[in-house]
Design a protein around this nucleic acid. Sequence first.
DNA 1: GCTTGAATCTACAGTAGCTAGAGGATGTAA
DNA 2: TTACATCCTCTAGCTACTGTAGATTCAAGC
Lengths: 142, 142
Amino acid sequence: MLTIGNLAKKTGTKVQTIRYYEQIGLMPEPGRTEGGQRRYGDAELDRLSFIRHSRQLGFSLDAIRELLDLSDHPEKSCDEADAIARRQLRQVEQRMARLKALRTELKRMIHECSGGRTADCRVLEVLRDHSECLTEHDDIGA
Amino acid sequence: MLTIGNLAKKTGTKVQTIRYYEQIGLMPEPGRTEGGQRRYGDAELDRLSFIRHSRQLGFSLDAIRELLDLSDHPEKSCDEADAIARRQLRQVEQRMARLKALRTELKRMIHECSGGRTADCRVLEVLRDHSECLTEHDDIGA
DNA sequence: GCTTGAATCTACAGTAGCTAGAGGATGTAA
DNA sequence: TTACATCCTCTAGCTACTGTAGATTCAAGC
């Protein structure tokens, strides 16, 4: 039986975050000691690990909730999980493309920008320039 | 002269977001009509475009503020811009690494998960499994 | 010139996903 | 049994927006 602090350590989560997940219904209400402290078992450790890894991979709590629901009801088709994954993959690839462009620009800036003044520096222009914007106006959010 | 609505359209920003940027000092207070409505010129369009593109690339508003400050004071040495650029480059590369890992995982998920049922689907297990967690416990935040 | 309706205004509340702090209770090891 | 780390609840704060209410303004059509 794990205390909330140990569960936190094992999963790299803050204690408050675990309580927050419980509050919003992502984690179940755990058993308690006589004195009212939370105690966790392996099932909860697995569930929290899943949540944390998903978060690290960029899933929103809503997407995670969807996946956990699938996991809780395995009779459903996998197509649903697949759709979620595909959605996330599209977002990930968009982000990577943008970051790649930025990285190129930052590298050039660092290279060219040695003892000059900001006025000669094109980084700001690059990101300001509309013509260099390929994937215009798509969403930012996770 | 652009209305706030047209500026919003041109930059893919919500009207409220523009007002929010003004409120926190990222965007300057624009000129107003007699009736009190905001009117924007090209300088503001450029500035907002820069902000939006930077946000799309994952920069925090604070980082953007730094870059804009440099742009607003081109008499400063480029060393400062260089330092910021280097810092950002590090962040960008970290992000790309994480996204790359995610992309691999999502692709594998989609590949393995074809027409089966959730019970057979390893997506949930993969993310739950501690042993497959390589980059354990690193931060998530932007 | 007048009307109409979309767009704007301010102000405030709500969202996601946490994070921090106060003030007090509990658990455990020496 | 005492010290003190950890736990509890509750509340507030954070970033970066987003939405709503109710009033005002602008521009186009008649």
